[in-house]
Amino acid sequence: MENAMDRMEVKHYRESNLLKRRKLKNSLMIGLMIVATLLALTPLFSILGYVVVKGIGGINLDFFTKLPAPPGELGGGLANGIVGTFVLIGIASVIGIPFGIMTGIFLSEYGRNRFGRIVSFLTDILLGVPSIVVGIVVYTFLVLAMGGFTAYAGGVALAIIMIPAVTRTTEEMLKLVPSSIREAGLALGIPQWRVIVFIVLPTSMRGIITGVILAIARVSGETAPLLFTAFGNMYWNTTLKEPIASLPVQVFNYAISPYKQWQAQAWAGALTLILIVIILNVAARLITKKRS
């Protein structure tokens, strides 16, 4: 009896020590995870804080409503650049979103063949191509053909950057839809394209919308391709067949200028771009948030 009690006490002691070691390891790993998270977030918040400190002074009503002032003069704003950025994003979205979604549908539903593998390979290549290369290509094939820089060329360049991101997001979201849902629709005699359009797409729409918004957020701050395509100007744009101002390009030009007023507005423009990206990301989260 005593031996049995001793064995139980020894067993209890070992289990207690094992539990303590597990708790210690768990606390240690949680601490390391917190430290790693702080190390990862520190540069991000440092950059955000620095941009806010440097740019908040240049944010005023004139910044959002007036055209750029002549070199060396005080005042003025970047209203034409802000509007031009939204125009370029609009052109890119009209071209890139439908094309990207349709390509993603093809790869997910019909891409199990040689042609599908080629399209998937090209999509992966486009994802890794530097944006400045996209700008040079569009300059060669579109800007030179049209005889000058245009808003159309800038929108096409941004659309090319958007397409692979939207394609991959659409493809992955559609693959998450169970095959049983497709089979149920086909078993009812519904054509495959109707199953895709009315059953599969609505099921994965939240994820697709998230990918689209994130793709838009990505191209919102692109500068390099716009230098070769939309170029920019200091006035309001009246036609899409002419160079158009954009916030990233104006921030770049102002940042390298010798005028302190322009440098201050460059920081304000950078802060505005960050706010646009944050708003788009928050919108993506709100759209995809599941209702309780």
Rank of each mutant, 00 (worst) to 15 (best):
M1A: 12
N3S: 15
D6C: 10
R7D: 11
R7C: 07
E9T: 06
E9S: 01
Y13C: 12
R14P: 03
E15V: 10
K20M: 08
K20W: 05
K23D: 08
L24T: 04
K25P: 13
S27G: 06
L28T: 07
I34H: 13
I34P: 06
L38A: 11
P43M: 09
P43R: 01
F45I: 09
I47D: 13
I47M: 14
V51H: 07
V51E: 03
K54H: 09
I56N: 01
F63L: 08
T65V: 11
T65W: 02
G72Q: 02
G76T: 13
G77P: 05
L78A: 15
G81D: 02
V83R: 04
T85P: 04
V87K: 02
L88T: 07
V94Q: 06
V94T: 11
P98M: 05
T103M: 08
G104Q: 01
S108C: 10
R112L: 06
N113I: 09
F115E: 14
G116L: 13
R117D: 06
S120V: 02
D124P: 06
L126H: 01
G128H: 07
V129G: 02
P130L: 01
I136N: 08
F141Y: 04
L144H: 00
A153N: 03
I160Q: 01
A165Q: 04
E172W: 01
M173C: 09
K175Y: 01
S179M: 11
S180G: 01
I181D: 08
A184M: 14
A187R: 02
L188C: 12
G189I: 14
I190H: 08
P191Q: 04
W193Y: 11
V195C: 12
I196Y: 07
I196W: 10
I196P: 07
V200P: 05
I209F: 10
G211H: 06
G211I: 14
V212Q: 03
L214V: 06
A217Y: 00
A217V: 05
S220E: 07
E222C: 12
G232S: 12
M234A: 14
Y235M: 03
W236M: 09
T238S: 09
T239V: 06
L240T: 14
A245E: 08
L247T: 12
Q250T: 15
V251Q: 05
N253C: 04
N253F: 07
N253I: 06
Y254M: 14
S257N: 05
A264K: 15
W267E: 01
A270T: 10
A270R: 10
L271K: 12
V282S: 01
A283E: 03
K290W: 02
S292F: 14
